[in-house]
Amino acid sequence: MIVCQNLSKSYPMGHGRKHVLRDLSLRVNPADKIALLGRNGAGKSTFIKLLGGVELPTSGTIRRTMSISWPLGFNGGFQGSLTGYDNARFIARIYGKPYDWMKDFIEDFTELGRQLNMPVKTYSSGMRARLAFGLSLAIDFDCYLIDEIILVGDANFREKCHYELFERRKDRTLILASHDMGAIRDFCNRAVVFRDGQATETDDVARAIEEYERL
């Protein structure tokens, strides 16, 4: 379970502060699939970063009783100058997983072949997505934080993600920031709409999508 209470996040901007999130409270239950909806800059990614512990809230608390992945997005979590294998080894070490197994898993999942011997900074965003996803699936978290990243892959990758996340790991929790309404309609059971720093939470995903489309 993840319990967020009265989360606020603001950044210094000029002489004042920009309030990205105000007073957000949310309770995430096991096996929830939560969609985060909102326009660019509405605070979805910031919320994901707070959940993942990448940044700390300006006020409010987050209590986590399940293991949460790092935010899977376009950047972060990698060292660009290291190769794919080195990054995998690093992740295996800090999460205490056997590297041999991890190596086999990502070779199989990412299908990047010899490219894994190249520095990650030479990867395209689709390739990065494959690696990030492969690594986090190898760790096996209770909850996955996904920041748009499923969308960048090709058909084959999307199919794989779909299988790994929505079939093999149905019982896991998913928090998904996305503009792909099709995927959200199909898989999510709850939605949070972000607007002017306020977040409204609902169980009616179809209505949340309507609301988002009117934004």
Binding site: G77, Q79, Y95
Partner: peptide
């Protein structure tokens, strides 16, 4: 800072 993505660090 990119390492801050991993909470145990």
């Amino acid at each position: 800072s990119s390492l801050m993505y991993h909470r145990q660090i």
